[in-house]
Amino acid sequence: MERQPSGIRDLLIVDDDPDIRINLRDIFEDLGFSIDTAVDAQEALTLARSRRYQVLLVDFRMPGMDGVRLVEQMQHLCPEAVPIMITAHLGSSEFPDRAQDLRFPVLPKPIDVGRLLPLVEKALAG
């Protein structure tokens, strides 16, 4: 599969909740982003093989591979993509201790888009 030239504002949303995928797509498309969505880590990895993303918006808890492991694998495949994680489990025992060692931002659900947008802008600027 031939790689497309990298876009300026390419964002990949990975979340198993269809409503969240649509909502984040609507919000970011309205802001002029080019959006792909994936239902799980497997689909996200497949997409990342054919397109270079600047930002990855990843849910932590998904069927199959969780968000943290997906980001680890993405960093080999798409090292320039800046990950941002979203979780309903921040501060709970379900979210792994390794979250403290993560080198990317983790936002709690429900998402405060007002907080998310500057993080995305910063990722694009960096």
């Binding site: 909740d17 969240i20 489990h89 429900p110 998402i111």
Partner: peptide
């Protein structure tokens, strides 16, 4: 409960 309620809240908030 937190998980089951935060997910719909997440959709509501983003909508």
């Amino acid at each position: 409960i937190a998980h089951e309620i935060r997910n719909p809240l997440n959709v509501i908030k983003t909508s």
